[in-house]
Computed example of a mutant assay.
Amino acid sequence: MNTGCKKNFEQLFSKRFPIFKWVITLVLVVILGSCVESASSQEVLMQNPVKAIPATKISGTFAETAPPDVIQALRPSLEGYQPQVSILSPQADEILQDNTVKVQLEVKDLPIFKDPQWQLGPHLHLILDNQPYIAVYNLNQPVVLPDLSPGTHTLRVFASRPWHESFKNEGAYAQTTFHVLTKTEDNNPDVKLPLLTYSRPNGGYGAEPIMLDFYLTNAPLHSIAETNPDDTMSNWRIRSTVNGESFILDRWQPIYLKGFQPGKTWIKLEFLDNQGQPVKNAFNTTIRLINYQPNGQDTLSKIVRGELTAEQVRGIVEPNYTTETPVT
């Protein structure tokens, strides 16, 4: 390159270089800004609370249906009660020196009785550890639990309607943990965590629909999730599995299912957190085996099938009720 051309090129470059440098700077700023925006978007995404898994419609082999007509007709007779349940003995954290335990219960604001004709009435469901419940109709005598294994045990009890649906008002549930001879780590739920208590289905059935019912303790209201995104339990769900078919419940109320085949059926209930993961606490996952044999002749089966009227069996909700005999 000759001297003149070289001089002209240097003059041109010197004039254009500030513009070139400005363009390079602008490109770098845009690139860095995109990186910061991308990083910020990822950070916001990570901070957003995980939405709870939605409730699912019950479909497949089983279907949800309305409660039997007779039960709906009898239910108002018990709506005025707010049962208050207490465990008088054994006391909380008591160490017993005998493996035969006498349980004394108390209930206020609910008559506990069994109609002599229909063999049903308001009662208590008493659960030792995670065993099937014991129906208690008489509070004058203690419930005797023989031959308990040494170690820690937990009693749970709640008030129940004659058709085994739990009362869910404040105070209808009581719980105590005690020890036979010594303390162990078993059967000792964390009182700070939500606790799921399985109630029904249980035992044998002679008619469908069959009620699914449970009790919840320390489960926060769903509305808390809207005000406290850090709460990991407020969007809880209950996963129910019946013979391998699962559905998700987001409400605490009994449901009635139909579609059962004669014979044995297994049911599993699990308490799930906001992310759909089982909450690790004693008794939060429970499996029961029931036996459905159609055409059962017990009172509840006849009520479910509509073979008895509400007036005929009203004595199971009103202890002093007497059926009027029509005059001929």
Rank of each mutant, 00 (worst) to 15 (best):
N169G: 15
P209H: 05
H222R: 08
E208P: 09
E170Y: 15
N169L: 07
H164F: 09
S160F: 12
F214W: 07
S223D: 14
S160L: 09
Q175T: 06
E165S: 09
A172Q: 03
H164D: 13
F214A: 08
T182A: 11
K192P: 07
A207M: 06
L195F: 09
L181H: 13
K183I: 08
P209N: 05
T177P: 02
L181A: 12
P162Y: 10
N202S: 11
V180Y: 04
Y205W: 11
Y198C: 00
K192S: 15
G204L: 08
Y198T: 00
G171L: 06
D213C: 04
E208K: 05
K183W: 04
R200D: 15
L193V: 06
L216K: 02
K168L: 14
V191S: 12
I210V: 03
Y205A: 02
G204S: 15
L221S: 13
K192Q: 14
P194L: 01
H179N: 12
D213N: 10
A219E: 02
N188Q: 12
V180P: 08
E165M: 05
L196V: 03
T182W: 11
S160T: 10
W163V: 03
F214C: 02
H164L: 03
E165D: 10
E170R: 13
H179W: 02
T182G: 05
N218L: 03
I210D: 00
L216V: 04
Y173D: 01
V191L: 10
S160H: 06
A225P: 06
R161W: 10
Y215P: 01
L221W: 10
Q175G: 04
P220A: 01
Y205G: 01
E185A: 14
P209C: 09
L221K: 12
Y215D: 08
T176C: 00
D190L: 06
A172C: 10
L216D: 03
N218R: 10
W163E: 04
L212S: 05
F214S: 02
H222L: 07
N218S: 04
Y215E: 12
A225V: 07
I224D: 12
T177E: 01
N202K: 10
A174R: 01
I224Y: 13
F178Q: 01
S199N: 14
N202F: 03
